[in-house]
């Protein structure tokens, strides 16, 4: 009874969000699009320059394409690795192991602190040429690479940090696995379907909604990564870890080219939108919903 009569109350309740949306989300979004067509910097008002920023990005700025490539590489390496790891461990934990809560706690631990500066510093220290990781590799007679100084290894080192945090995805997979009705497996057993067959015909299809959700969230995150690259490698060596987040920060707040950085951020935004849309579009073909929609 209170719901339609009290509609004014409803509007009052959402007012904080509405103000926040207008002032801190919609207005900045429009302004950054506007800035992207100017040479705005915090020091001056900025003149309209048309498409100059965008043209410069794609034709003159040799670090932009580099940064774009590095960001894609980062996402393409880290996201599948993280999800695969999360899935494997979740499936093993789901074998009705005892003390499952203890294991879940341990595996989740990296996720609650992995994004911090403290852990990035730990990573930097562990992966130094004379650091702990190479020390332990040395015991096995392996001469460890220069993780942070080598152009081919530095991005991998940063990927490892985010893969280490697979616990957050694992918890979701675990919940998804526990939602699969066991009679599906019993029926498959009776039909004589092997374990591998069951994985591809039951487990994987039933998990596709969770995979879908994880994939979107992780890709959006990966494309915006900043802290690890900024702390561990500073974007180097030779721009090998120069993620888009780092480039936008440096252009906007070090070189104070805010119009230019706004243009870069819009390119990133459009890329994120396109990728998200693509995954959503493709979901009809591979995501299976167990509620009669299929």
């Amino acid at each position: 009874m209170g719901y339609s009569k009290n509609w004014k109350w409803g509007m009052i309740f959402i007012l904080p969000w509405f103000l926040g949306f207008c002032i801190l989300q919609a207005y900045p979004l429009i302004m950054s699009l506007y800035y992207s067509f100017t040479d705005f910097s915090i020091l001056g008002s900025g003149d309209f320059v048309g498409l100059d920023n965008y043209i410069r990005l794609f034709t003159k700025d040799k670090y932009f394409i580099k940064s774009l490539t590095v960001t894609f590489k980062y996402a393409l390496i880290s996201v599948p690795m993280k999800l695969l790891m999360a899935l494997i461990v979740a499936m093993i934990l789901n074998m009705k192991l005892k003390a499952i809560n203890l294991f879940r706690t341990v595996y989740y631990l990296p996720s609650i602190m992995g994004g911090s500066v403290a852990i990035s510093i730990l990573w930097k220290f562990m992966f130094m040429k004379e650091g702990m990781v190479n020390g332990f590799l040395g015991i096995f007679g392996i001469e460890g690479p220069d993780w942070l100084g080598n152009q081919n290894m530095s991005l991998i080192t940063i990927c490892l940090l985010v893969v280490w945090q697979f616990g957050s995805s694992m918890v979701l997979f675990l919940a998804g696995l526990q939602n699969i009705p066991t009679d599906l497996y019993e029926a498959a057993d009776m039909d004589g379907a092997g374990k591998i067959m069951q994985f591809f015909k039951i487990t994987l299809p039933m998990l596709t909604p969770v995979i879908f959700f994880n994939l979107i969230m992780q890709i959006i995150h990966a494309l915006q990564e900043f802290t690890s690259a900024a702390i561990i490698t500073g974007g180097g060596p030779n721009h090998a870890t120069y993620l888009m987040g780092v480039k936008i920060y440096e252009d906007a707040f070090r070189s104070l080219k805010m119009g230019y950085a706004s243009a870069t951020s819009w390119v990133l935004f459009v890329i994120i939108l396109l990728i998200t849309m693509l995954i959503f579009r493709s979901s009809d073909a591979w995501v299976f919903y167990n509620d009669g929609r299929d």
């Binding site: 002032i23 951020s265 819009w266 990133l268």
Partner: peptide, 20 residues
């Protein structure tokens, strides 16, 4: 609108926010 802001990357709003 509220749901769609979940997809809004921080990078794209932070410069005008800073200016504000």
């Amino acid at each position: 609108l509220m749901i769609s802001t979940m997809m809004l990357p921080d990078a794209v709003i932070m410069i005008p926010r800073y200016v504000l």
